[in-house]
């Protein structure tokens, strides 16, 4: 394995300022020029809010993809967590703790099953996690009989969790920032993180080097499941009620961000901080399109183009991978 795939220990300027952050600055400048509403405090908060929900999902998918695999079940896990959190009726201290813990545990369970299928049984991760996506969505819809979910006993403390705005910034943004920082440290400074890069770089070599590939791989899926569930709980707290058939599709923008942030589709390369940058780029683009009244279909089209462009760009820069 070459040195290049290993994360460096000393922090350089280029570690923090990667191309995606420059892209972000450019996109923000263009957005501000296109619409004078863009930089209004309310809109900036909206951009961050939107970015955070998808961003937390994308962080988990980054970890899985650095290990060389995909997790497309995350959108379904988000929906599951939001529905379960609301069904548990988060009221009072214990109630809120349960309403947060149970969805996260189920998310971890879904991740563990994905991880076992991919790393123990050798299943193709894309198709397996798409199968899991349908399994989970079907199960959740069966649980609520396809009905709209409205929490009967939703406590104000639970909704206040995400509506609080210390320093004028929505609390979920702090959660996201903390998760990015934590994952950045885990991925670059711990043995566990370096093992993930090793597995993604070359599974064969990692196995021969004595790295517990299956255990670490399963852990990456568990992380992804828990993070997706976190996103779902945040949605539950933000919205307070939801139509389970209308929520979902988070995995695609998240995947687009992961790839745009420079995570290699073949694994071994990628960093959580860059994914965060890419998430903001996509949130800004989506926001501007909404301001300019380009609705969901066009946004979908543009996301597909961004994904294709990003994959093509990185594969060209890495000399075809």
């Amino acid at each position: 394995m070459s040195e290049a795939v290993l994360p460096r220990r000393r922090v350089h300027v280029t570690d923090v300022v990667t191309p995606i952050w420059l892209v972000l600055v450019v996109v923000i400048v263009i957005a501000a020029l296109i619409s004078d509403r863009f930089l209004s405090p309310g809109n900036v908060a909206a951009v961050l809010q939107q970015g955070v929900i998808t961003g937390i999902v994308a962080l988990g998918m980054t970890v899985v993809l650095v290990g060389g695999e995909f997790d497309l079940s995350t959108g379904a896990t988000v929906m599951m967590a939001a529905v379960v959190a609301l069904l548990l009726g988060p009221d009072g201290g214990v109630g809120i703790a349960v309403a947060i813990a149970v969805p996260l545990l189920i998310g971890a369970g879904i991740g563990a099953v994905n991880g076992l299928a991919v790393y123990r049984a050798g299943a193709n991760s894309i198709v397996a996690t798409i199968g899991m996506q349908f399994l989970v969505i079907g199960a959740v819809l069966a649980l609520v009989s396809g009905q709209h979910v409205r929490a009967d006993a939703i406590g104000e403390t639970f909704t206040a969790l995400t509506h609080a705005r210390p320093l004028g910034v929505p609390l979920p943004v702090f959660v996201f920032a903390a998760l990015v920082a934590a994952l950045a440290i885990v991925m670059s400074q711990t043995v566990f993180g370096r093992h993930i890069y090793a597995i993604g770089g070359d599974v064969e070599a990692a196995t021969r080097a004595g790295i517990p590939v299956a255990r670490i791989g399963i852990a990456t899926y568990v992380i992804s499941g828990v993070l997706a569930a976190t996103s779902g709980v945040l949605i539950a707290s933000l919205v307070g009620h939801l139509d389970p058939t209308a929520i979902g599709g988070y995995e695609f923008p998240a995947l687009t961000a992961v790839v745009l942030g420079g995570t290699s589709l073949s694994g071994g390369v990628g960093r959580p901080a860059d994914t965060a940058g890419a998430i903001l780029v996509i949130a800004v683009i989506t926001n501007v399109m909404t301001i300019l009244n380009y609705q969901y279909p066009i946004q979908l089209l543009v996301q597909g183009m961004v994904l294709t462009g990003a994959v093509a760009f990185y594969s060209w820069r890495r000399g075809g991978a």
């Binding site: 198709v127 199968g131 399994l135 079907g138």
Partner: peptide, 26 residues
Amino acid sequence: VPSYYQRMTIGGLLFALVVTDGMLMR
């Protein structure tokens, strides 16, 4: 049977098939 159980069944079936596919390849 409501359509969401059908969705579950197809998802589960595909999941099981892909796992089998992977194990056979190994």
